[in-house]
């Protein structure tokens, strides 16, 4: 069996007395698309943010392609890395936010080239060529010189996807990428994500779009109350859920 691209083992996370993640395991193989569904407050987003160390975890570990994220192992203890090293490892992980978080004072092109240049030290012309290619891929070649506020929400999220891909990451994490969009703009973002999934990009997507899960997911994970309740191929989890809580959730969203 090949090494998993993403390996999450026994992750716990609390905010004070509130336990948000209670021992989560998750394995994603290279090229796989994993869709995480579950009621709000179930810890989906926290799990995603733990994977690239935007949240520190209390217990357990996360490894990308066999390399620990945010920590180094010495003996049987884990030590948090220095910020510089954390930042370097993060360039292997793309992250797409619910609210896009594009840099409003930079043009679309600058948004996409910023990290390759400053975090990966690529030459500017190489980064710009890559940006042109990625903007073409998300269908926004003509918007390279525009500022984010001049774009629709759907266009902004497509730029954010291009920005995440510009790092040539090993895995791309999507945190409810369509939840902040007007209904008529959801489609264009989903189309880009589906194309990405078919091209063999390793993806973990937190979403309420059951359609996306059905269409492109290799694995659907249902989470509730900080735990993975069940996981498996979409047909199994979405159509013949084994667990009552999964059934109850699906009956509400379908």
């Amino acid at each position: 069996m090949s090494t998993p691209m993403v390996d999450v083992r026994g992750v716990h996370k609390s905010y004070g007395p509130l336990e948000v993640l209670r021992g989560v395991d998750l394995t994603v193989r290279p090229g796989e698309v994993t869709v995480i569904i579950g009621p709000s407050g179930s810890g989906k987003s926290t799990l995603l943010r733990s994977i690239n160390h935007l949240e520190k975890i209390d217990c357990g570990y996360v490894a990308i392609d066999g390399e620990l994220v945010g920590y180094r192992r010495s003996g049987d203890r884990l030590y948090e890395l220095r910020e510089r090293d954390i930042l370097r490892r993060r360039t292997q992980i793309g992250f797409v936010f619910q609210n896009f978080h594009l840099f409003p004072h930079l043009t679309v092109r600058e948004n996409v080239t910023e990290a390759p240049i400053s975090a990966q030290g690529r030459p500017r012309d190489e980064a710009e060529a890559l940006a042109a290619e990625l903007l073409e891929q998300v269908g926004l070649s003509d918007k390279a010189g525009a500022y984010p506020r001049q774009l629709s929400g759907g266009q902004q999220q497509r730029v954010a996807i291009a920005r995440a891909l510009a790092l040539r990451p090993k895995v791309v994490l999507f945190d409810e990428p369509t939840s902040a969009l007007d209904p008529e703009l959801v489609g264009e973002v989903l189309e880009v994500m589906k194309a990405l999934a078919r091209s063999g990009t390793t993806m973990i997507v937190v979403t309420h779009e059951i359609g996306l899960a059905r269409e492109v997911a290799d694995t659907v994970v249902f989470m509730d109350a900080g735990q993975v309740i069940e996981h498996g191929p979409p047909r199994q989890v979405l159509d013949q859920p084994r667990h009552d809580r999964t059934r109850a959730f699906l009956s509400k969203v379908l």
Binding site: N52, R89, R90, F97, L102, L167
Partner: peptide, 8 residues
């Protein structure tokens, strides 16, 4: 967002 992109 800047931190997630690994920007120094």
């Amino acid at each position: 967002a800047a931190a997630a992109l690994g920007i120094p």
